[in-house]
Simulated scan of single mutants.
Amino acid sequence: MQRELAEKISLTQLFILVSTFLFGSAIVVGIGGEAKQDSWIAVITACLLGIIPVCFYIFLLSKIPGKNLFEIMEIALGKIISKILILLYITYFFYVSARVLRDFGELVVGDLLVNTPIEVISITFMLLVAYILYLGLEVLGRFSEIYAPYLVGGLIVVGILLFLSRELHVENVLPILPEGLGPIMSTVFPDLITFPFGELVAFTMILPYASKTRYAGKTTVLALVFSGLILAYSSFVQIATLGSDTKIRAKFPLLNAAGEISLLNFIERVDLIIIFVVMFGILVKISILFYGGLKGLEQIFGRPYRAFIYPMAMVIAFLSIIISENFAEHLKEGIDLVTWMIHIPFQFGIPLFLFPFVLWKTKDVRAERKKV
């Protein structure tokens, strides 16, 4: 199928998109809290193990160069089966987009615009996402280059200001491994390996558009490692500031930690700046997931993805609101349902199912070329 435009992003933009995608809602809701004071170790462990599925996605794409996951499905499985799987992935990408949007809406309504209905936040934010994607993937890449330094810089500055405010208590992360590796591994599998690292399956829709596809895989892995270190740093700062029971004490641990900053009776309420900073990570994450779903619609209906942007943006805004009655139910649903019933099948199950068919198809193509 002909692509509407030959969109391209540079390797630098790809690196930034992968990094900010992983920060996304992981920075907002916090990750690894189940491992308590060893959460930062759990994040590093999950990051290193997360390289394995990412390399698998890259290898899968390399078997049929220049094609995204949905196009590969159609080549390997035929139109009927591929359309069923693509519809499932569309649902997955849109559903996870709605969950991430709900995370951000709860953050803003709970700590910044307390008198603003969450519906207003969701609709406004999705209109912004829709506008950026309507302009194209290249615009999202350029946008990310501008705002990425604020995201990473903001996270680092929070740790420095907490240290200068004497709110950073390193003893909170001690003792290290008091119960051995058990709590860490139970946190890594399946929670951290699926969220956020396994969600990089969405980049199977982006990698074919890298300007130098030869180096796209290495760039993605480097971005994954970089993001893992920053997330581990963020987790360390949260534990050192709030204690090992951050999951119980705070809905948004980093925000609560930033709220402890008070320096020279002048530098205060840094948490408001943090909301602005993490908004960029949320925007990139929703945009990538939303783009993946839109490309699925393009593949099925044969129309440019831009034709679906605004209607589906409003669907996601609506879904984010009705997805749960309150934030507690939203988080519980993520623990009880999303990881096992949604993340694992789409991040690991279907790609593994697809793999032998791709190998068989590429084997047939090579055999035909030899005959010619």
Rank of each mutant, 00 (worst) to 15 (best):
L224Q: 06
L231S: 05
A223Q: 00
G228K: 00
A232K: 03
S234E: 09
T220E: 07
L222V: 02
K247C: 11
L229I: 00
Y233M: 01
R249C: 14
T246N: 13
S227P: 05
F226R: 04
A232C: 09
I230H: 06
L242Q: 06
A223V: 03
F226D: 05
S227R: 09
T220S: 04
I239W: 08
A240L: 11
K251Y: 10
R249F: 13
I230G: 07
T246Y: 12
G243P: 11
F236N: 00
L229W: 06
K251A: 13
T219L: 04
I230E: 03
V221F: 01
S227L: 08
S244K: 12
L224V: 04
L224E: 01
Y233N: 01
L224W: 07
V237L: 11
G243R: 09
V237E: 06
A232M: 04
L242G: 11
I230N: 03
V237D: 09
A232D: 05
A240N: 02
S227E: 01
I239A: 09
D245N: 14
K251P: 13
A232G: 08
I248N: 14
T246E: 11
I248F: 14
G228E: 00
T241D: 11
L242C: 15
A240K: 02
G228R: 03
F226W: 10
K251T: 15
F236G: 00
S244M: 14
A240Q: 03
G228P: 05
L229D: 03
A232E: 09
F226T: 05
Y233Q: 06
Q238K: 08
F236R: 07
V225I: 11
V225N: 01
T220P: 02
S244G: 12
A250G: 14
A240S: 10
L231N: 00
T220M: 10
T219H: 03
V225S: 00
F226A: 00
D245F: 15
I239F: 06
D245C: 10
A223C: 01
Y233R: 01
L224F: 06
L242N: 12
V225F: 05
D245A: 12
V225A: 03
A223E: 02
Y233W: 02
T246M: 13
T241F: 08
V221P: 04
I239L: 12
V225H: 03
K251L: 15
Y233H: 07
L229F: 04
K251I: 13
Q238T: 11
V221W: 06
K247R: 13
A240H: 01
S235F: 05
F236H: 04
S234K: 06
G243I: 10
D245R: 12
A223N: 07
S227N: 03
A223F: 02
S244H: 08
I239Y: 07
F226E: 03
F226Q: 02
K251H: 10
R249G: 13
K247Y: 11
A223L: 09
Q238G: 07
I248D: 14
A223W: 05
G228L: 09
T241A: 13
R249V: 15
A250L: 13
A250E: 14
S234C: 09
A250I: 12
S244V: 14
I230T: 07
I239R: 10
L231K: 01
Q238L: 07
S235Y: 01
K247F: 12
K247T: 15
L222S: 02
V225M: 09
